[in-house]
Measured scan of single mutants.
Amino acid sequence: VKVYLPNKQRTVVTVRDGMSVYDSLDKALKVRGLNQDCCVVYRLIKGRKTVTAWDTAIAPLDGEELIVE
């Protein structure tokens, strides 16, 4: 899953069964001094942002793009 992060940064996270968006992005956010409490995650669908819950399973999102703001 390709993830666009604040400050024009981006990362790619590996999809693993049983993991949530929260778990999958935890390290990427912490390395950048961010956490899930201060950010909102969106799914990018056909160029439009849709709010996605942090506890959403990451497996069904394989191949999609997320935006964290």
Rank of each mutant, 00 (worst) to 15 (best):
I45V: 12
Q36R: 14
V15L: 11
K46G: 14
A28Y: 08
T56W: 06
T50S: 06
N7F: 05
V12W: 12
D37I: 06
W54D: 03
L44M: 15
Y42V: 01
D37T: 06
L61M: 14
R32Q: 14
I58P: 01
G47N: 03
V41P: 04
R10G: 10
N7A: 05
R43I: 00
Y42F: 13
K8C: 08
V21H: 00
K8Q: 13
R43L: 00
D23P: 01
K30D: 03
Q9K: 12
V31M: 12
R32G: 07
E65S: 10
V40T: 09
C39D: 01
K8E: 13
R10L: 12
V31D: 08
L29C: 00
V15Y: 04
G63L: 05
G63F: 07
L34R: 00
T52E: 07
K8L: 06
C38L: 09
E64K: 07
D55R: 07
R16P: 10
K8H: 11
T14C: 08
E65F: 04
G47P: 00
N35D: 10
M19C: 11
V40R: 10
Q9G: 07
R43G: 01
D26T: 07
C38K: 15
K2S: 09
C38R: 11
V51K: 13
Y42N: 10
G63V: 11
L61V: 11
T14R: 13
G18R: 06
D17T: 09
A59R: 13
V13C: 09
T14W: 11
V31C: 11
D26N: 06
Y22W: 12
K49N: 00
T52S: 04
V1F: 06
I58A: 09
G63E: 05
L44I: 15
G33Y: 01
D26M: 10
A53R: 10
K49R: 10
W54F: 01
G33N: 05
R16V: 10
M19K: 08
T11I: 12
V21E: 04
L61I: 09
V40Y: 08
E65M: 07
L29M: 15
V51A: 11
D55N: 11
D23T: 11
V15D: 07
E69S: 05
L34F: 12
Y4N: 15
V1C: 09
T11A: 10
R32S: 10
L29Q: 01
D23I: 05
G18N: 08
D55P: 02
M19D: 11
R48S: 07
R16E: 13
T52A: 09
V13K: 00
Y42G: 02
Y42T: 04
A53D: 13
P60T: 14
K27R: 12
V3D: 02
G47L: 01
R10M: 15
V41S: 05
V13G: 00
R32F: 13
T56V: 08
R16K: 12
Q36C: 09
Q9W: 05
K2C: 15
N7P: 02
R43N: 04
L29T: 02
K30V: 03
Q36N: 04
V41N: 02
A28S: 08
D55T: 07
T14F: 13
Y42K: 05
T14L: 09
R43C: 03
K2Y: 07
D37V: 03
L34G: 00
L29F: 09
L44T: 09
V31E: 15
S24H: 00
A53C: 09
Y22G: 15
Q9I: 10
D55F: 01
I45S: 11
D55K: 06
C38F: 10
T56K: 10
E65A: 12
A59M: 15
T11Q: 11
V3G: 00
K49Q: 04
Y4T: 11
R10T: 15
K8Y: 08
S20T: 13
T56I: 05
G47I: 02
C39E: 00
R10Q: 14
K8V: 03
A53T: 10
D37L: 04
T56G: 09
D37N: 09
W54S: 02
R43A: 03
V15N: 06
K30L: 04
Y4L: 15
E65H: 08
Y4C: 06
Q9E: 13
K30C: 04
A28T: 09
D55I: 05
E64G: 08
G18Y: 04
D55S: 09
G63N: 08
A59P: 04
K8N: 15
N35L: 07
S24K: 01
Q9A: 09
V41F: 02
K2A: 08
Q36M: 09
V41A: 07
V51R: 13
C38S: 14
K2G: 06
A53K: 12
D23M: 07
E64W: 09
A28P: 10
C38T: 13
T56C: 11
Y4K: 15
S20Y: 04
T14P: 13
G47T: 04
K8I: 03
K8G: 15
V41Q: 02
N35G: 10
K49P: 05
D17G: 11
S20R: 06
A59K: 12
V21M: 09
R48M: 09
D62W: 06
L61N: 06
A59L: 12
T52L: 14
L61P: 04
R10C: 14
G33L: 01
V40K: 11
E69L: 01
R32T: 09
V40M: 12
R16H: 15
I45G: 09
D17L: 07
D26S: 11
K8P: 00
N7M: 06
V31L: 14
W54M: 05
Y22V: 07
R32A: 15
D26Q: 15
P6G: 05
W54K: 02
A28V: 15
A28G: 02
Y42M: 03
K46Y: 06
N35A: 09
A28Q: 05
G47F: 00
L5F: 15
L44P: 02
Q9R: 09
D23E: 15
V13M: 01
C39L: 11
V51W: 14
D17I: 08
Y22D: 02
T52Y: 09
G63W: 02
N35K: 12
D17V: 09
L44E: 07
K46I: 04
I45H: 13
G63R: 02
L25E: 01
V15R: 02
N35R: 11
S20V: 01
V15T: 10
W54E: 00
Y42I: 02
R32H: 15
K46Q: 13
L61C: 06
L5R: 00
K30M: 07
R16N: 10
G33K: 06
I58Q: 00
I45R: 11
R48E: 14
E69P: 03
G33R: 03
G47D: 03
K30E: 07
G63Y: 06
Y42E: 00
L29A: 01
V31N: 12
L44Y: 13
T11G: 01
R43D: 01
T52R: 05
T50A: 08
M19A: 09
V3S: 02
D37S: 09
D55L: 01
E65G: 07
V12F: 08
T56D: 12
V15A: 13
D62P: 11
V21W: 04
R10D: 07
E64A: 09
M19R: 08
G47Q: 06
Y22A: 14
G47Y: 01
V3F: 04
P60H: 12
R43Q: 11
C38N: 15
V1W: 01
I58W: 11
S20M: 02
V15W: 11
R32V: 14
Y22E: 10
T11L: 14
R32E: 09
A28L: 14
L34E: 05
K46C: 10
D37C: 08
T14I: 12
T14M: 11
E65W: 05
K2H: 03
C39G: 01
Y42R: 00
V12S: 07
R32W: 09
G63T: 10
N35H: 06
V31K: 12
V12C: 07
R16Q: 12
S20D: 07
K49T: 00
C39F: 05
W54G: 00
V21G: 00
L5G: 00
T52F: 03
G33F: 01
A59H: 13
P60C: 08
L5A: 03
A53L: 05
D17E: 13
A59D: 12
D55M: 04
M19H: 05
R48F: 08
Y42P: 01
K49V: 01
K30H: 02
K49M: 08
N35W: 01
A28E: 09
R16C: 13
D23N: 07
R48L: 07
L29I: 01
Q36G: 06
Q36D: 04
E69R: 04
G18V: 03
G18W: 04
L44A: 05
P6C: 04
V1R: 05
V12L: 09
T56Y: 08
L5W: 15
K2Q: 07
